[in-house]
Write a protein that binds this DNA or RNA. Structure first.
Lengths: 200, 200
DNA sequence: AATCAGACTCAGAAATTCTAATCCTGGAGG
DNA sequence: CCTCCAGGATTAGAATTTCTGAGTCTGATT
């Protein structure tokens, strides 16, 4: 049936790099080093015999081929994800257990996230904690706290403090690398964004 | 974007095995040993947490999950192939150089394959030879000859001898493993089938 | 001019995948 | 009933692929 295909690993590297236009960011999403992404993309380009990126001193651009390839590859990964979730709902559909430190909770609306309907499909329960290690121990999937860091190999998303528009004090959303872009995290972050910056 | 996906290798193994309902045949298509396919499929099932095959003493059956997964995965690989060919036409679109041994040529219509329009997009040239080694040396992509074998790791498709309906003497289509199912081979085989068994 | 961010390279380490040999099961045939 | 056979499972070790980590290079920024 299929005769020759590029390897999935290199396609994932390409897809992430093309989406971010950065090997470094892609590497962080994939949980590997930038060198690995660079090598995978180079391997892909070699196997296709076509350049996909134009390397500029600061950042990347897609070539024409890369431009037409990206949306189709992204689509393929989406289809694959959908098909996989259909038969194995647990693989990506698991609800998150969310850690929330008291200080952060005080900055958020009363009862968040329980009363946000949009989060029901994604959040199983909320635990009051500020211990980052519980992410590594898989006791919680993500943690919202006010300060701290650095968090080593964990992914970090910063959110402006809703009561401190100066931007000095921040809310931190922390999770395992590679989980920052999953549906659950996105839903939570979108909801927080809505809470914090209504209408923006 | 994508959070967790099964590995492409295991998906390829699944797709081929599900299509053939045989690890052995799938292994031959993929150019690996049956054990490798078995391992990949097992890994996939483990990572999904879902059984895809029911192992019967003689052959395989798909489970419900496998049944719904297969068409979607096949589709994904088709899309991937199409997208890849769009930007790198050479990867699968290369025209074949076809070896044809004199004895076999005598059994086929005068001038075959040159005068078959359907083969023009797939066949670059025809070389008179019966040397199987030229496939391994990449001098030709496939070879049609009357007898011989075994051909070791090369793929073999048998075609009935058009002038010997008893079936004892056969025409052999030989190519590298993994090339038997590509478009070019399929086109050639389809055309030979038409030549040999008109109307069937 | 110095600094910096990001991509590249390369050798060695780590992980994955494949092979090859052997085992196991159930059906077919004598 | 017994033997043979086909095909899948299993395993250790080999082969291959992929990743890391350190260092280099380039052009933009200060």
């Amino acid at each position: 049936m299929t005769y020759r295909l590029p390897s999935l690993n290199s396609l994932r590297a390409f897809e992430a790099a093309a989406r971010h236009l950065s090997f470094k960011t892609a590497a962080s999403e994939l949980g590997v080093t930038p060198g690995a992404v660079s090598q995978q993309v180079k391997k892909l380009e070699a196997s296709l015999g076509v350049a996909l990126f134009r390397r500029l001193p600061h950042g990347l651009l897609l070539t024409g081929a890369g431009e037409t390839y990206l949306p189709r590859i992204s689509r393929v990964f989406e289809d694959l994800t959908d098909a996989t979730e259909e038969i194995a709902p647990d693989i990506n559909g698991r609800k998150f257990t969310l850690g929330l430190c008291p200080k952060a909770a005080a900055l958020l609306p009363e009862g968040w996230p329980a009363q946000r309907d949009a989060l029901h499909p994604h959040v199983r329960q909320t635990i009051e904690t500020s211990d980052v290690e519980r992410i590594r121990r898989d006791e919680i999937d993500c943690l919202i706290r006010t300060g701290g860091g650095p968090y080593g190999d964990l992914a970090l998303v910063e959110l402006p403090n809703p009561t401190d528009r100066s931007g000095r004090s921040k809310l931190h959303f922390i999770c395992k690398n590679g989980l920052a872009d999953c549906r659950q995290s996105k839903a939570i972050l979108a909801d927080l964004g809505a809470v914090i910056l209504p209408g923006s």
